[in-house]
Amino acid sequence: MARPDVKNFDIGAMDALARRDAPAQRLDPRAKLFTTLAFILTVVSFDPYALSALIPFLIYPAVMVGLGDLPVGYLGQKILWASPFALMLGIFNPFLDHTVVGHLGALEITGGWVSFLSILVRFALTVGAALVLIATTGFNTVCSSLAAFGAPRIFVAQLLFLHRYLFVLVQEASRMARARWMRSCTNRGPGISTAASLLGHLILRALDRAQRIHTAMRCRGFAGQIQVAHRMRIRPADVAFMAGWTVFFLFFRMVNGSMMLGNLVKGLIS
């Protein structure tokens, strides 16, 4: 059995990235949230067979990764972890949709495959953009921007608790996994009965701890709303950031950038 390595569970890493001093981190969180929402809405609004038209949208996450000094490999890994969901959603498309939409040499490309790939690309883009937002802003600040945009308080508090209790759950789980590992002499994984009891204990322990944290929060005057002390100020650069990207997204929503570039190159060659 592999050693339960706490490093794998380092979920605080995103918050550490958000504390870096880089241009993307210095932008107003609301500007980033707005731009990310505009990006996600635009990307999901494409028709199911759109593929080439999505390519210009890679530019936004790429630019943000650059501006935020973010580790590409780390973010890529996170996207991969979440990818089974997208795979499940799209996996049957190639089997159901046999309409031939194009040829690649002798190979027939069916609509099913195109829409499957489109789902994967869209998934990578939207999840990537959301991760970039959190990695440049920090989860709590994203939540307070949501509140600033008028999201219901209860929803924001739920998100914050979800984030906080994730830490609790992971910490408890890694402690238990380590304790089990220290006393398991064989290299085999946990038997079903041990696993069931571990899981049961995990939920009880996490609930207990969550209760203690909640009590501690109430003792410090918590009344259903988490306040964050960061002063948010919209500067001209933030407005330019929002407006610039929104125009960019709308333009490439209406114009197929890849096709345009292709035609341009074709025109230049001929």
């Binding site: 504390r19 929060m217 964050v228």
Partner: peptide, 25 residues
Amino acid sequence: MVFQDPDDQLFMPTVTDDVAFGPLN
């Protein structure tokens, strides 16, 4: 109240945010 396990008491992303939690409330 100072709790027995500091991990129960500290939950914000930075020390500053955590100390500010009570006064903000």
